[in-house]
Design a protein around this nucleic acid. Structure first.
Lengths: 140, 140
DNA sequence: ATTCTTATTGAAAATGAGTTTCATTTCCAC
DNA sequence: GTGGAAATGAAACTCATTTTCAATAAGAAT
């Protein structure tokens, strides 16, 4: 991800974090929901575990998890970011249906050759994001 | 007297659109600036050719060009979309520097094998977007 | 356990990219 | 030319996400 909108007290990953009931609720919700969910969805689900949880806290928790490398945001261009937990070693991409907007996951990574091309440009690749757009089996 | 004017519904790429000084300015600006520019940048540049051009008109023109397939928006997750003209047959990806935020273009497309994997999922791929994040030659 | 420090929280207000409204202007088919 | 649809600019609006700020609560130190 490119730089977030503005400064926010730089904190070192994992340092000085407190495990609160709210954070547990957000983590549980994300784990239950799986891949690529909007903040509102995560909020609604997390309220099952902590009914007074505010949406603001969900956003803050998502930001903290992202900073610590435990979650990532996916930006498809519809104005609402999707978030998911980063499962180490389970790298995947997304199949975005242009008809129903549903997001399926596509396991595995076939982007290695592209990374080679980037290196030849003098660019050090640390990550990538691939989204495939089209029509899912039901919408087709 | 029966009107034989073209209706909105039968609009096709490039057809039924009026070529105004404002649109010419936006097109010229996008052509000059090249790949992946923010609406504000395009606006500033286009004002060289049409000083009273409003930012709203830039957004509307970008939307029209996108609808007609002449331009596309790129969403990197920093809250500001980038826009570029789609040069037919010149498909490319983007190298996004995490340090300076600069976007370089990477010509060619090496995503074919991934598309095959998607088809095996019953998904009809009509397009994709690949962004590689890392550090450019100067920032590294 | 009680106190202390400071991260975390929720509510409300702010932000900012992008969109809509509306009165006015301009293009262009006739 | 002329008339009506399309395009324009300014201002108001939308809405996801952020910031502010006073109150709360983790977790370390006592």
């Amino acid at each position: 991800m490119v730089k977030t909108r503005r400064r926010l007290s730089e904190r070192r990953p994992g340092g000085g974090r407190r495990m609160t009931a709210q954070r547990r609720a957000v983590l549980q919700a994300m784990s239950d929901l799986g891949c690529a969910r909007a903040a509102e969805e995560i909020h609604a689900r997390a309220r099952r575990f902590h009914s007074r949880l505010g949406l603001v806290t969900v956003y803050r928790t998502l930001a903290a998890l992202t900073r610590d490398g435990l979650a990532q945001g996916i930006h498809l261009g519809d104005g609402r970011a999707r978030y998911e937990l980063t499962e180490q070693g389970r790298h995947h991409h997304h199949l975005v249906c242009l008809s129903c907007g549903n997001v399926e996951r596509l396991d595995g990574c076939l982007v290695q050759p592209v990374q080679g091309a980037a290196r030849r440009h003098g660019f050090t690749v640390t990550g990538h994001r691939l989204e495939l757009f089209g029509y899912c089996a039901t919408c087709r």
